[in-house]
Design a protein around this nucleic acid. Structure first.
Length: 107
DNA sequence: TCCTTGACGGAGA
DNA sequence: ATCTCCGCCAAGG
């Protein structure tokens, strides 16, 4: 067990994602900034991609800045995320977009 | 060490 | 609204 720089960043990211309230979403870049890591949107995606399947962290509340799920439509991951969001009342249009005006988390 | 690969983002066209 | 083209950061080859 070591505390590498990236591990510290990962903790910051987990903590921030945990703060997203149910029924709301946040973009990768937004999470990065709130975590004190500007310009690290890709890192957020990377960190979330390494979460264990049974993680309690609400990774599915994180989408891209275009208001879309960052997985290929029809993919297993896409459907899983879509389902979790729908279960929380987050609406996704037929074209796969989420209205950020309405559902984006603004702390 | 250099190059490629991503759950990214913003500016243009 | 859609599609490039870059810039960014860390990991893996």
């Amino acid at each position: 067990m070591s505390n590498t720089s990236t591990e510290l960043k990962a903790r910051q990211i987990w903590q921030t994602v945990n703060a997203i309230p149910a029924g709301k979403v946040a973009s990768y870049g937004q999470i990065a900034k709130l975590a004190g890591l500007p310009n690290c949107a890709r890192l957020v995606g990377r960190v979330l991609s390494q979460l264990p399947k049974d993680s309690k962290i609400p990774w599915y509340r994180v989408i891209n800045s275009q208001g879309k799920i960052s997985f290929p439509p029809e993919s297993e991951a896409f459907l899983a995320q879509q389902g979790r969001l729908n279960a929380e009342g987050v609406e996704i249009s037929k074209t796969g977009r989420i209205n950020l005006r309405q559902f984006q988390w603004n702390p």
